[in-house]
Nucleic acid binder design. Structure first.
Length: 351
DNA sequence: GAGGCGTGGAC
DNA sequence: TGTCCAAGCCT
């Protein structure tokens, strides 16, 4: 029970972080803007992946002004592949909000909390790392580490914040916050923690009792299997794409006409139906080669794409656009559909 | 407060 | 060719 109080453990943690912290490029020149983007990118996303994209993002949108001046479409497109797209929409909204308020980001945790997409963790992280505010950034790593140290599987975030407040008198909050996160990633992992190398092992109740498996997993977190028939319909070398409506998977992103189908349904027939509903006459359809499977938040998805030529039998009334697969017009596609788009035949044949 | 939101890495 | 889950947030 000394972590929040024992200065020696705090110093050991900080020392471990100085020696073993990874040399991520984002740690080189932390600015309010770059830390903000990094923290949002890393929400529910492994840090190594966020780091790659963070670099690219800063080249595209080097500051808040540039970001706010861009359209949401551009911002979403830069985010493509990272998932949880509301994060990108919120980043853009927040940038506009900051510019409207004079162009300076809030510097305190409470101020940061007023921005969309910035919650308890992200606000504390930015405030502590950039501005030295002594507040705890409690993420899944910090939670796991502290719960183990105190052998308290139900230790609440509020309690964790209080415990860490004591630590911030001995080492900077930004250092402790990052150190705990990295400790959780490198040593205090969910399975097979490496206690022998851990700077907190001496005072860790879980380690001392040999009971490190404190995690309780939620039941019923399995994914539902979903098969989706996809219509890749070509007309004069262009393919029909549509924006997914609210309430459907990938809402607000672009995709081919598609429909979730049951086990016994014939995907080809569904594709014909999709075409007919849009006033299209279809030629022969061919299944597109390759496997298009992937995950969604709560689904395991299998795309069944059919490719074919189409003619507009009626006047086009659909909400979709016909696009050249090589020029998507800056539209954002879910990863699975992006892969489809890239696999499409581009040759300009009769249709 | 539970459920929804994407994707790829680690076993 | 499966399961679990990341530097969470919003409604």
């Amino acid at each position: 029970m000394k972590l929040g109080i024992d200065p020696a453990a705090i110093h050991a943690l900080a020392a471990w972080f100085r020696d073993h912290g990874r040399p991520y490029h984002f740690r080189r020149h932390p600015t309010p803007y770059s830390v903000w983007i990094l923290e949002v990118m890393s929400q529910q996303t492994q840090i190594a992946r966020a780091e790659e994209r963070h670099r690219r993002w800063l080249e595209r949108f080097p500051d808040i002004r540039t970001l706010a001046a861009a359209g949401e479409e551009e911002v979403l497109r830069e985010w493509e592949g990272l998932g949880y797209y509301s994060r990108a929409r919120n980043i853009h909204r927040a940038a506009c909000q900051v510019m409207d308020a004079g162009g300076e980001m809030p510097t305190t945790r409470d101020g940061l909390l007023s921005l969309p997409g910035i919650g308890a963790y992200t606000a504390a992280s930015i405030a502590s790392i950039v501005h030295g505010e002594p507040v705890a950034a409690v993420d899944a790593n910090v939670r796991r580490v502290l719960r183990r140290v105190f052998a308290a599987p139900d230790l609440a975030d509020g309690r964790i914040e209080t415990l860490l407040a004591g630590a911030f008198e001995h080492e900077p909050a930004g250092v402790i916050n990052e150190a705990l996160m990295e400790l959780g990633e490198q040593l205090c992992r969910k399975t097979r923690p490496r206690c022998l190398e851990c700077p907190l092992a001496e005072g860790c109740l879980a380690c001392r009792s040999g009971r490190t498996e404190l995690e309780r997993q939620k039941p019923g977190s399995g994914r539902t299997r979903l098969s989706i028939a996809v219509a890749c319909l070509r007309c004069r070398g262009r393919y029909l794409v549509e924006e997914a409506p609210q309430g459907e998977l990938w809402a607000g992103l672009w995709r081919f006409p598609c429909r979730i189908i049951g086990q016994e349904e014939d995907p080809e027939a569904v594709v014909r139906q999709l075409g007919a509903e849009r006033g299209l006459r279809l030629g022969s359809l061919q299944p597109l080669g390759g496997k298009y499977t992937g995950g969604h938040t709560r689904y395991s998805i299998h795309l069944l794409p059919y490719c074919g030529s189409a003619r507009r039998a009626l006047r086009a009334g659909g909400a979709g656009d016909w696009i050249d697969p090589r020029e998507d017009g800056g539209r954002t596609f879910p990863t699975l559909f992006r892969r489809l788009l890239e696999a499409l035949p581009v040759k300009d044949r009769k249709d």
